[in-house]
Simulated assay, not measured.
Amino acid sequence: MQLEQRSGTSTADWSGTVPTAFDARVLGLVVVTAGLAASLNVPYGGIAFALAAFVVLAGLGILSHVLGERQLRRLADRLIEHWTDAGGQIEAVTKSSNGMRTEWTVQTPDGTVTVGGVALAPISRLSVEWQGVGDSVAASDAEREIDSLAADLYEEIFVIGTATQQS
């Protein structure tokens, strides 16, 4: 599935999945941290031991980022899918980033919603920001409660937000 923008209408409905958001900055941080940690092993185990430690630490860090990104992407996809099923209009979903966070910007007729978080598997957190107000929850908790979370966010963004803007 691909994100599409339908021609001939002022808004487009979301009909796809969110884009992949592997973040080179997070991967760079992982590699630098693995290098520093591995360098501590040089006096004790030699260059070969430090190199092996670097490979293991960098591999685990990259795997952690890949798993964290997939988890956040899956959550963002399910949130957006729930919103469209409930009647919300999604114009576009694009990858964005802020600091060390992996994010997707969701364009709606009522404004921009930012969905994302820190994409490192054991500490991944899902955050949602709309009109300058945001909240975050552990990604594992969000996966367990995705339906109620999506319904609450839909109510806040598409129902209450639309009513507030029309007043």
Rank of each mutant, 00 (worst) to 15 (best):
G35W: 02
D135C: 00
V93A: 15
S124G: 07
T102H: 02
A119E: 07
V137I: 14
L60E: 12
D85L: 09
G45V: 08
H65V: 15
D152A: 13
M100E: 05
A119T: 06
P43N: 13
D77N: 15
R101E: 09
V56C: 08
V42P: 08
L51P: 03
E81Y: 08
I80F: 08
Q71S: 12
V56N: 09
V159K: 05
Y44A: 13
L40S: 13
A52R: 12
V128Q: 04
T102A: 07
V30Y: 05
L36M: 15
A58L: 14
V31Q: 03
A150E: 06
L29P: 01
T84W: 03
S140Y: 02
A121M: 06
G61H: 12
P43K: 12
V128S: 04
S97Y: 05
S39C: 07
M100H: 12
R101P: 01
S136M: 00
G35D: 02
W83I: 02
V30P: 06
E81L: 11
Q71I: 06
A139L: 00
I62T: 15
E81S: 15
V31F: 06
D135K: 04
P122F: 03
G116Q: 07
N41H: 12
G46T: 06
E143D: 07
A92V: 02
Q131H: 06
W104P: 02
Q131Y: 00
V113S: 07
G134H: 04
S127R: 11
R101I: 03
V32L: 15
R144C: 00
P43G: 14
R125Q: 11
G88Y: 04
V106E: 03
R70M: 10
R74F: 04
N98M: 12
T84I: 09
S127I: 01
R144D: 09
V32N: 12
G46L: 10
W83P: 05
M100L: 15
E156F: 03
E156S: 08
D135I: 01
L36D: 09
V56M: 10
V30N: 13
F54Q: 09
T84D: 01
L120H: 10
G99S: 09
L75D: 05
R101S: 13
H65S: 11
N98H: 14
T33S: 15
W130G: 01
D147K: 10
E129L: 00
L36W: 14
R73I: 08
T84C: 10
V133C: 00
A138E: 05
G45H: 10
E91C: 04
G61F: 08
L51C: 10
L67F: 12
L126N: 07
D141V: 05
T112Y: 03
L67H: 12
D147C: 04
A139C: 02
L57A: 15
V118K: 08
W130V: 03
L29N: 11
Q89K: 11
A119F: 05
V128K: 03
S140W: 01
G117R: 06
A121H: 09
G88H: 07
